[in-house]
Amino acid sequence: MTKHVEIRICGLGGQGVVLAGQILGKAAVFDGLNVVQTQSYGAEARGSAAKSEVILSDTKVGFPMIRHCDVLVAMNQKSLDMYVKDLKDDGILIVDEGLVEKIPSGLKAKTFRVAATKTAENEFKSKLYANMIMLGAMTKISRVVSIGALEKAIAESFPEKVKEVNIEAFRKGLALT
């Protein structure tokens, strides 16, 4: 059986969803997978809907866009409403508990609520860490990439002085679920 997983991380511009997707993609390369990561955001720097899509496969990835989403991570209500349509019935939905109130009715995908932004504010004094907390929760729930690869990818993606705190936030996410 070939491995082919489509993951979409969406939210508001500024929540760090594009960076989260990049780190996830890098981790999958460390795990020896073929990866395509794409992103989409509005012309505004902050506040418009943003998404980051990652396709992991053990064969070559042709079409780079998501059509059958296995894992959807939604960091706010608006982006969930916009991007839930491709989520597979046997897929996984992970939402930021504080920022997503309404799960679309009739959704068959298994849903997990993670208090990412709230935890970031309470424990790291900044909601900037919500994306790494979410990555941790997603890694634990979906097991699409290894924890070791993700920690290595996070370490390579941040400057020295904020590296540790981001890995800490990731580990917090692992423990939340």
Partner: peptide, 9 residues
């Protein structure tokens, strides 16, 4: 835009 912004190995 797709190829410019895309990340791949």
């Amino acid at each position: 835009e797709i190829i410019a912004h895309m990340r791949e190995s």
